[in-house]
């Protein structure tokens, strides 16, 4: 994919912001806006990798992968690059792992308008500092994703949501690799995947009832808690649905302000200063204030 045009658009001077489909808040107001290249460059099912423009809509990517029975561990809205820049995993993190692990290689445009390659072209790679890790969740403050290589995974033959009133910790202990266990303080929802007979056998053994997933999740705040502390949410104000074993809480109330260690603040300041010394990329976005 020719990315030089995109790099030239980002340029080397002046404030600039990047837009996707505005499903996660959109670009910075009042700043020159660019959009990343779109389109699937190469999908290699027998490598389980796909290379695409960062501006590619997730819907388009998911459709193309599903035709070969594969998927990526990225929540299904907005653009690929937007999802990666924000870095928030979906409800299946317990089973699939965090979305950050899906990014194998990235080509991004740095603050000097240069194309930079981070990570490696293979599913396994430990060659040098892995800047892909830094880019996921960086909200476009260190560079703008242009093209990404993602690890795919096979779609399961069968999946089914269930509900249960059992203690969610007990479910976590005894179920074999559930994809998701959600809990609202009284009911649990469990997503199982795999061979149909295995799923039904696990469900029978644990007395699970087939059900729809929770109809809607509270959207007041996205809390991030150590999963061992999730039980403490019960009896406190506000409706919630917690991702058990993970620690994400979809809450009616805004998340408590995080405390950030002074050393961490200083590292962020230095990283930003090294990658974007004039603060031109997504100006005003403070990744430490996001919650």
């Amino acid at each position: 994919m020719d990315l030089t045009e995109f790099a030239e658009e980002v340029g080397a001077a002046g404030p600039v912001t990047i837009a996707g489909l505005a499903t996660r808040g959109g670009p910075v107001d009042g700043v020159r806006t660019v959009m990343a290249p779109t389109g699937i460059e190469a999908f290699t099912p027998d490598e389980m990798t796909v290379r695409c423009g960062a501006g590619t809509p997730m819907e388009e990517l998911d459709d193309a992968l599903a035709r070969h029975g594969q998927a990526v561990v990225i929540p299904p809205t907005g653009t690929v690059g937007g999802a990666l820049a924000v870095g928030r995993s979906g409800l299946r993190r317990l089973g699939y792992g965090p979305m950050r692990d899906a990014l194998l290689q990235a080509r991004f445009v740095n603050a000097a308008g240069e194309l930079v390659t981070a990570g490696g072209p293979t599913v396994k790679n430990v060659s040098g500092f892995d800047l892909c890790r830094l880019l996921v969740g960086s909200w476009g403050t260190l560079g703008f994703l242009a093209e990404v290589l993602l690890r795919t995974r096979p779609l399961s033959a069968f999946e089914q949501w269930f509900t249960s009133t059992a203690d969610p910790d007990q479910l976590l202990r005894s179920l074999y690799r559930p994809t998701s266990v959600l809990w609202d303080g009284s009911h649990a929802w469990i997503l199982l995947e795999g061979h149909r007979d295995d799923v039904l056998a696990q469900a029978a053994e644990h007395d699970l009832t087939p059900a729809d997933p929770p109809a809607e999740l509270p959207t007041g705040g996205r809390w991030s808690m150590p999963p061992s502390e999730l039980a403490s949410l019960v009896g406190r104000d506000g409706r919630f649905v917690a991702e058990m074993g993970v620690g994400i809480v979809h809450h009616e109330r805004p998340a408590p302000a995080p405390t950030v260690d002074a050393s961490i603040v200083e590292l962020h300041r230095r990283i930003k200063a090294r990658f974007d010394p004039t603060g031109r990329l997504n100006p005003g976005v403070d990744v430490l204030a996001r919650s």
């Binding site: 870095g87 928030r88 995993s89 993190r93 965090p98 950050r100 430990v126 500092f129 892995d130 800047l131 890790r133 830094l134 996921v136 969740g137 960086s138 260190l142 996205r222 991030s224 808690m225 150590p226 999963p227 061992s228 991702e243 993970v246 620690g247 994400i248 995080p258 950030v260 260690d261 050393s263 961490i264 590292l267 962020h268 990283i271 990744v287 430490l288 204030a289 996001r290 919650s291």
Partner: peptide
């Protein structure tokens, strides 16, 4: 200085410093 990169919670705020430290 001594600090913790990443966290026991799933989405610590800020850059994934844990991720770049590993490796």
């Amino acid at each position: 200085s001594v600090t913790v990169l990443g966290g026991d919670d799933p989405e610590p705020v800020g850059y994934d410093l844990r991720g770049v430290f590993v490796g």
